[in-house]
Design a binder for these strands. Structure first.
Lengths: 147, 147
DNA sequence: GGGGCGGGTTGCGTGAAGGAACCCGAGTTG
DNA sequence: CAACTCGGGTTCCTTCACGCAACCCGCCCC
């Protein structure tokens, strides 16, 4: 992302993408949701350059999407944990992953599944209406400017 | 996005991001969801460079997320329309937009809202369990490798 | 024949991504 | 006590995608 600003967009999609739309960022967050927390862990899962990982983690900490906490002294070492703001990306990450499952199919089927802990059903992402309480189809949504 | 391949990730989030994770791509799709369909329309809404828009649209057409259809001859002119695959990104786009609404607040509140056509309630994105049928919290989800 | 419109392509400069090498403090092995 | 390893980075260099401006082309209108 060159300038990583999408000025004048008047849309929070653009503001979100300024923060988490850089290359690798969402994959780092996915790895963190799956339990990775240490620098070397991300390196092992992601095949990302160390300097790039370093700058992404710094940016995520700065944005309070992750926090850097020491897990030992002598020598002091840090790990990276998602904050509630970061964990709030779960829906978006699963939505993108399942879009890939549906529309970029592979032989063998999708490699990962989102399970409901305790009940073991499969979790999927739905649009819901806050007023009538029903599930909503893609075509029934109108995203409109309100300001 | 430099190489725009995230090889060996074994995760459809990575495969999705290869297709729609480039800078501007998701904003183009959002504009298309909002009704924009012509080259100049995207230029006007997005403040994107013409060559970049051109290459993004070409890639989206190649991936069958959009289609390029003539809307007049003499001279022949084309517009770009979302395919069902593209419209299936609605959930993901709204999820990211509403993450911004919740976590990157601005004075004045969010600039756009997703309304349920006909009922006029506000649409939001939820995780739902396919087995027990209930809404699921972020912490109740376990994304696990199944292959 | 000059201008405008829609829809692009070409060429150039720059800054972010990729890769490899290096660094540092502390523990561990021989 | 030197050499090595491990976690967690930083520095440096190269390359390639982005941003910008200029140009192009077919067709219409005046």
């Amino acid at each position: 992302m060159l300038k990583h600003t999408y000025e004048g967009q008047d849309c929070n999609l653009a503001r979100s993408l300024e923060v988490i739309g850089e290359r690798w960022t969402l994959l780092i967050i996915r790895s963190a949701l799956l339990g990775t927390s240490r620098f070397d862990g991300f390196l092992a899962h992601l095949d990302i350059a160390r300097n790039v990982l370093s700058s992404r983690l710094a940016r995520l900490v700065e944005q309070e999407i992750m926090e850097r906490v020491p897990y030992q002294d002598k020598p002091v070492r840090y790990e990276y944990r998602l904050t509630p703001v970061g964990r709030d990306l779960t829906r978006a990450v699963i939505a993108l992953m399942q879009w890939g499952d549906r529309n970029l199919p592979q032989e063998l089927g999708p490699p990962r599944r989102a399970d409901h802990i305790g009940c073991d059903g499969v979790v999927h992402v739905e649009l819901h209406c806050g007023s009538c309480g029903r599930a909503v189809h893609d075509e029934e949504v109108d995203v409109r400017r309100i300001r």
